[in-house]
Amino acid sequence: MNFQAIKTIYMFEMMRMFRTIGQSIAAPVISTSLYFVVFGSAIGSSIKSIDGVSYGSFIVPGLIMLSVLTQSISNASFGIYFPRFTGTIYEQLSAPISYLEIVIGYVGAATSKSLILGLLILGTANFFVDVSIQNIPLMTLFLLLTCITFSLFGFIIGIWAENFEQLQIIPLLVITPLTFLGGSFYSLKMLPPIWQKISFLNPLVYLISGFRWSFYGSGDVNLGVSFIMAALFLIVSLLIIRWIFKTGYKLKT
């Protein structure tokens, strides 16, 4: 293992965050506050509690998921796309590092950033509403699993993308809608039966539900199913990355 190289890539990526530390903290804090003002207070006051949890508290896990999913993808995809775009990727390709080390460096950094972001939102939310976490280890596990999986997924997008539009299109057109439709701001039980069935095709339902389970002890789907789905996403992402590096897809001619 070339630990020095992993550390170098990791620190390089983290520096981007530290350089704009004010922005990195302010952005999630402000947007979370906005959500609570709009959803929690203005709209939430007229929604009765769900499964015995007040609406403001109910949306906390979904809100964290929404940010963590999109930020994991955009951080990791940008991290690897930028050197491809500028051409400096030649360094990573000619250095004595394995693909595994490249992935650990970039995905590790993106994961760390998302974790920090998730915790920031959690802290901010706690300021507005009561947040109780029933199972902290489970919550941590789900959060970590999500950060890693979607950072890996972002890494894949960063390798696949040919331009900046393609880089944004998946988080914008796929992930954000699926998160909104995945029960981040409502319980699937509130939907008509046919829409409930359709919702189960949305893979993010399982992640959001499982994550909420760790907070309030109940979710839209069985905890075990959520867990299996989360693990499955991770495995699929890993397999795609292995294939990318085996074939040199978009990296080597």
Binding site: Q4, A5, T8, I9, E91, Q92, A95, P96, I97
Partner: peptide, 9 residues
């Protein structure tokens, strides 16, 4: 960065 990438302290 390059030095680090090549595994050098």
């Amino acid at each position: 960065f390059t030095r680090g990438l090549f595994g050098f302290k």
